[in-house]
């Protein structure tokens, strides 16, 4: 019997979400097929790459990262440097210093920094804002930053089970920004958060999911199976509550594991710290992209070059 190519079922597509404004705006998602299944249907948008910048300097940065930011004295200058790295689609500014157990920078000060960075970027690349991973404080800084950047179409990462009401009400509803529900490898929670946030009135097309992230080798199979299951639900089961594009900010994970941090003095057999860190970042990124992540966050220019090359070669 001759092979009959099954026609893909119509209707199931990932939402297309726009970050930023103007000619340098970036589109995430929009595809109606599994990752890189370009033979089934045209894939509207390639996987996008964000570069991670912190509001404070990275501690113990490897040479490739240190040289990129050498001489930059503040977050705005670092953001501009980051935006110029080849292969970068958008810039992720992470407010590490907002952490109450650290520098505890006030929400007003964070907003001022965000505004200066946004203005310095001058629309060259869209901006994504990440918090300090303190739920309560993140809700506060997101509120002020979202107000300061109103009209910028900025993505806020993340809205979690603990703070989604505040984040959705302020960044999502009051200031019309994009928000990223985060669900830490819990597929049921991923769906539930999308449902709850859209029930509050946020348009599903303003959501970009962060379904969990880990460095390869660190519970990573849960990340992959989570992304697989969510893409499967969106595509095969036509589940509109899961048809948001996925953003996986892996670099905060990959640069924190021992493969990327152990010194050459401690681990003489492991080779260069920088090479290890870049390798970890590339391997992790490629795996989540192959599973269907529509965007990733990376830190090192060499990783960005490699992943960008891969994405474009497969496009």
């Amino acid at each position: 019997m001759p092979f009959k190519k099954p026609a893909p079922k119509p209707g199931a597509a990932i939402n297309e979400v726009v970050l930023g404004t103007g000619e340098n705006a970036v589109k995430l998602g929009g595809e109606s097929v599994l990752p890189f299944y370009g033979f089934d249907a045209e894939i509207a948008n390639t996987t996008k790459i964000g570069i991670e910048v912190a509001d404070v300097e990275f501690e113990d940065a490897v040479p490739g990262i240190a040289v990129l930011y050498a001489g930059a004295t503040n977050a705005a200058e670092r953001v501009v440097r980051a935006a110029g790295v080849p292969g970068v689609d958008f810039v992720c500014l992470r407010f590490e210093s907002a952490d109450p157990s650290g520098a505890d920078t006030s929400a007003e000060d964070c907003a001022a920094v965000a505004k200066s960075a946004f203005d310095a970027l001058a629309g060259a690349k869209p901006l994504v804002i990440l918090g300090s991973k303190n739920n309560e404080k993140d809700a506060q800084i997101f509120d002020k930053i979202a107000a300061a950047l109103q009209g910028g179409n900025v993505l806020f990462v993340s809205a979690k089970e603990e703070n989604y009401k505040t984040v959705a009400a302020s960044a999502g509803l009051a200031y019309g920004q994009k928000i990223s529900p985060e669900s830490a490898v819990d597929i049921n929670l991923a769906k539930q958060l999308n449902v709850l946030i859209t029930q509050m009135g946020v348009d599903a097309k303003n959501l970009v999911m962060n379904v969990g992230s880990a460095a390869a080798g660190y519970g990573f199979e849960y990340v992959i199976s989570t992304i697989d299951r969510i893409k499967g639900a969106a595509m095969s089961q036509n589940d509109a509550t899961l048809s948001m594009p996925i953003f996986t900010p892996i670099s905060t994970e990959t640069w924190a594991v021992k493969e990327s941090t152990a010194s050459e003095a401690d681990m003489p057999d492991w080779g260069s710290v920088e090479d290890r860190g870049v390798s970890m970042e590339i391997q992790t990124a490629v795996a989540v992209i192959a599973s269907g992540s529509n965007a990733v966050m990376l830190r090192h220019p060499a990783s960005i070059a490699a992943v960008s090359k891969l994405v474009n070669a497969l496009a």
Binding site: N188, K191, Q192, Q199, L242
Partner: peptide
Amino acid sequence: NETLFADSYLEL
């Protein structure tokens, strides 16, 4: 397993 469970599944 024809639809992914969420706590609000009856409202969907």
